[in-house]
């Protein structure tokens, strides 16, 4: 019967999807952690120049962010006075309001263009990654096999046993540690866009062993999000080592944190 064969195909595909997601999503997470060394993967010109600078002349480096050089033009010519009645005008202020000013970046020496420690192109715009991990992750998050409890703690099915799981008190203790270090971007526009997800691995002593890495980094092109993400990374690095129950190391070795400022900022 055509219906049942379709049904079978459907069941087979759903089971395959569940298996793939259940088994591979943690693998994906961990693989990314191990692969990461830079805190943020967007390659800015700053970082590029810094890398080049370290590679070439550690003490005499003079590489700069290539700021758009702009010339200050003189003031636009004033509106010519006409015959209308004028109120009293004082002479214009002594200080020239738009003084001549130029902002110039140091032109890059040819020697800085060679010997980069990592094979980096010189991006004028944010490079588009071939595989957008953020999108894959978004796809995974929509699958039904991840339970999210009311406490905001969730585990995938491949997680540790019940005895190894952190209690709510232990999770709260971790949150309290983070709370002291994290300064959310108060007053920023559209706080709902400033939810930062990061992943990191910890040593048994609670220090960072890998990461932290921004997961939803597709947003890093936005300066507000970038600033928010950097404040999260600073908070995590500053806060370590975290005090955690050593006997449950297996359950907190890899952590994914979602920093959500909306409640605090009334967004």
């Amino acid at each position: 019967m055509p219906v049942s064969s379709n049904l079978l195909a459907s069941i087979f595909l759903h089971v395959s999807l569940a298996l793939l997601v259940g088994l591979w999503s943690p693998m994906l997470n961990d693989a990314r952690l191990n692969d990461q060394s830079l805190p943020i993967e967007i390659i800015t010109i700053d970082q590029f120049t810094k890398l080049v600078e370290e590679a070439t002349m550690p003490d005499e480096a003079d590489a700069r962010q290539e700021a758009p050089a702009f010339e200050r033009t003189t003031a636009p010519s004033a509106v010519q006075p006409d015959t209308m009645p004028l109120p009293d005008a004082a002479p214009p202020p002594d200080k020239a309001p738009t003084p001549e000013l130029t902002q110039e970046a140091v032109p890059e020496e040819p020697r800085f263009r060679v010997a980069s420690p990592v094979p980096l192109a010189r991006p004028q715009v944010k490079p588009k990654p071939l595989l957008d991990i953020g999108r894959v992750q978004a796809l995974l998050n929509k699958t039904p096999d991840q339970e999210v409890s009311d406490s905001g703690v969730s585990k995938s099915e491949a997680g540790p046993s019940a005895a190894e799981r952190l209690t709510l008190n232990e999770v709260d203790a971790f949150r309290a540690q983070m709370r002291r270090c994290w300064s959310p971007p108060a007053g920023a526009k559209q706080a709902e866009n400033l939810i930062v997800q990061v992943r990191l691995s910890l040593t048994p002593g609670g220090a960072i062993s890998a990461g932290p890495v921004v997961v939803n980094r597709a947003l890093l092109g936005d300066p507000f999000f970038r600033a928010a993400a950097e404040s999260v990374l600073r908070a995590i690095r500053r806060c370590q080592p975290f005090t955690m129950p050593t006997e449950k190391y297996a359950s907190w070795r890899n952590i994914e944190l979602t920093f959500d400022p909306r409640k605090m900022l009334g967004g």
Partner: peptide, 20 residues
């Protein structure tokens, strides 16, 4: 295409900070 795996990550939401 992705490398081989290890354990699940613990997920925690942080909604409170210290605006300073």
């Amino acid at each position: 295409l992705l490398p081989i795996p290890a354990l699940a990550a613990l997920k925690i939401d942080i909604t409170q900070g210290n605006v300073e």
